[in-house]
Amino acid sequence: MTVDISGASDESAVLSALPPLPPPDEVTATRHIESGRYGNLRAALAQLARKPVFIIALLYVLFVIVSAIFPSWFSTGQPYATFPSDVMQSPSLHHLFGTDNIGRDLWTRVLYGSALTIKATLLAIAIGLVAGLSFGIVSGFYGGWVDAVIMRIVDTLLAIPALLFALAIITSVGYGTIPVALAVGLGVIPGFARTTRAEVLRVKTQPFIEAARASGASWMRVLLRHILPNSWGPVVVLAVLDAGVVIIAIASLSFLGFGAPPPASEWGTLISAGRDYLVTSWWLSLLPGLFVALLVLSLNHISKTLQELER
């Protein structure tokens, strides 16, 4: 779609979005802070450290990841151990999330479930990132018919709603954590491909690329040393945002019953199993659900903060 008059309004929007020029001594001060190889990074980190909600979100995400790798650090019990005397206990200090119908500690089961869900999430994001980056780079870098073909494939994949595409893959591959991760991961490729391509196209036209070429760098070197490092910002933001989307998708699929078979305790499976006892024991479904929702919210907040920083 061509927008005839947008050129002028875009420019004014950009101009009005620019901050007013700082007084001269402040300029030198900023320069001083940002000097050195990692100056930009340090300045960015200092800015992030002043955002308390961001810090809390980051800590929560880190906690979930660490507890997924070392669940025994945060829980003394075993996920499959039953306490026949403690069936259907409501949350208490002894059983943080309460216990289920056969007396298993829900907190422990959520943490051990993290291992499965986080593994699946990382695998899905890795698939999306690697394939999406490759497609996006090839598409943006080579242009021409290669670009046209790849972008038509991306259009096609976008035409099928992601969850339905994942369900189709599960139909043919089968149930389990890995098939679910694969199915969801394939679904996020188009988004990564598009973002990467747009970034590569933007960076490719900058003068320093021309300068690098003029000073004799090969295309491969230009791609790896100049284009890639300058285009990964928005891709990282998307990866964090997509991690939230992927977690919801994976939890939804295991909620629908396509995750790891019982007694494994994937988050969606736990929430779905607790549904039968919602009337009497609300914590069985709602506490693991909140655990997941908080993680997704945190990831979205992190991605949003990074995006604001990027501008």
């Binding site: 919801i248 939804s252 659900g289 909140l290 929702a293 990831l299």
Partner: peptide
């Protein structure tokens, strides 16, 4: 709203 899982 957009980040709350629907099953929840």
């Amino acid at each position: 709203g957009a980040s709350l899982p629907q099953f929840l």
